[in-house]
Amino acid sequence: MIRLDDVWLKYAPPGHGEPGHDVLRGVSFEVPSGGFRWLTGPSGAGKTSVLRLMYLAAHPSRGRIEIFGTHAARLNRRGAALLRRQIGVVYQDFRLLGHLSAYDNVALPMRLARRSEAQVQADVMEILRWVGLSGRLEARPAELSGGEQQRVAIARAVVGRPKLLVADEPTGNLDDAQAQRLMTLITALNRLGTTVVVATHNLGLVARYPAPRLDMQDGRLTGDG
């Protein structure tokens, strides 16, 4: 189960200017293990900020975050690293490594988890086939279109069969057919037990794949259900 309990977030101001304002103001919700949630809301509402807390890239200024029974604030650095390996993240801005091929980008989390190269190869090839990139294994991110980069980012997030998949606007650069294919992949993973949270503006997509929706507005949750 994922649980946020009265979570506040304040970004540390760059330099020494004014103290940062509260980006999240008392966010609380639960996602049961194996559950699926849409995270919606206007731009700037705080969707990415919530996800960052969930994948341990930020620490709340107040409140408590629990991920699969682990209180995030109590994790040491090693524990946090090991927990991150169970969380697949699709970043809004992809965050691929520019010096690595598509194949090596997708292989990276498995290699960091010290899987055997045989295992890495089998899983990476399979997932790249799924996202339709079998023909672009050796391409660097700069040689790929925005949609192709997004698919590499998605493949990297799911290749390790994470317990939690966190996707930030994963269909932003995809055409309708690809977006549906991606959703098929994500729902398949979800059915296999992966807990999923997807932030999106795409309300058409939300309508086509009905699931509980966390709606945000100005740093607060306005609807949970």
Partner: peptide, 8 residues
């Protein structure tokens, strides 16, 4: 990025 992917 690498840190986010679980590198220690």
């Amino acid at each position: 990025i690498v840190h986010g992917l679980g590198a220690q």
